[in-house]
């Protein structure tokens, strides 16, 4: 039985490699070109043009297999996770066998770190190393975007027809009243990481969103006055360096029992809790620059 190959879907130019592969597999959409193969032995039974398993691929059977495998994998993964979570203690209960460190944090957290907000105390004092890794991840993300989107010159990019909203009257007049408050709120959330919910990541995200709004309401000239590529590079690298140096000093003095000149202060003051406030500022700056950098790199290919 012969199996007719399906009609090709309108390929005018195919790539050379594909032509070669087709020749090597000895079946070809182009019926005029002869396949390069030795003369086959005449079989008794009329052999099909293509084997049964290859015809399955062309008829789309592998797609059904993909769907079935995807559903099975999802069911297995979801059931594993649900069984794991149901074995854990209920939300809000005391679980002595799991929370040995948690009692230590809750009992002595404020007196050792000086932060009223225990979460900030944990992520920037007890687990400061992990937060440094997170900031590095943000930095790497922007670097990768910078590298990947700058391959061509960007000259032969078709620009989509788009309506430019930069000079819109309503937008600029309204944002004139709103953007200062967005920035103030972002700085407030950033500086109050150790006293109330907030911290570096939230404040940095709000600041980044504010800069994006400024650049889309007033154009790149206005936001380019204080965030350029040079500023971005200097700010992110110096923030990460400061984080490393400052936290290393605290690790060193704490591990060796020396006395560090960064005290804890009284809880509740704005200048307290050791290094948490400067580290929050560093992390927030990195996050804000990341958000704005990715936005600009995707909008045009330069910063």
């Amino acid at each position: 039985m012969t199996i007719n190959p399906t009609k090709p879907t309108g390929a005018v130019k195919t790539m050379k490699i594909r032509d070669n592969i087709k020749k090597w597999l000895a079946y070809d959409y182009d019926l005029d070109a002869a396949p390069v193969m030795p003369d086959p032995v005449e079989p008794d039974v009329e052999a099909p043009d293509i084997s049964f398993w290859r015809s399955l691929r062309r008829r789309g059977a592998h797609r059904a297999l993909y769907y079935v495998a995807a559903v099975i994998c999802s069911i297995i993964l979801a059931s594993t996770l649900i069984l794991t979570v149901s074995g854990m203690p209920r939300y809000g209960e005391d679980a002595e066998f799991m929370d040995t460190v948690t009692y230590e944090y809750l009992a002595h957290g404020m007196e050792y770190t000086g932060a009223v907000n225990i979460v900030s105390g944990i992520i920037l004092e007890y687990r400061a190393f992990d937060t440094l890794g997170e900031s590095f991840v943000l930095f790497c993300a922007v670097t990768c975007v910078l590298v990947l989107l700058r391959i061509d010159d960007g000259k032969d990019d078709v620009s989509l027809p788009c309506h430019d909203l930069t000079g819109d009257v309503i937008l600029s007049r309204t944002m004139r009243a709103l953007i200062p408050f967005i920035f103030i709120f972002g700085i407030y959330v950033l500086l109050n990481g150790h006293l109330s919910p907030g911290g570096g990541f939230s404040g940095g995200a709000v600041l980044g969103a504010g800069i994006i709004l400024l650049s889309s309401a007033y154009g790149e000239k206005t936001s380019g006055k204080f965030v350029t590529e040079r500023t971005f590079r200097i700010v992110t690298t110096s923030a990460l360096l400061f984080y490393c140096v400052g936290k290393s000093y605290t690790f060193y003095t704490g591990a060796n029992g020396l006395h560090s000149f960064i005290g804890n202060g009284t809880p509740g003051n704005i200048l307290s809790a050791g290094l948490i406030l400067p580290l929050n500022v560093a992390v927030g700056l990195v996050v804000a620059c990341t958000m704005y950098g990715i936005y600009r790199m995707f909008k045009e290919r330069r910063f």
Partner: peptide, 17 residues
């Protein structure tokens, strides 16, 4: 302040494009 302004921008884009 923000909800009518964003709807205005979307409507302007929709009308133009």
């Amino acid at each position: 302040l923000s909800s009518p302004v964003s709807t205005h921008l979307l409507a302007e884009i929709e009308y133009t494009m």
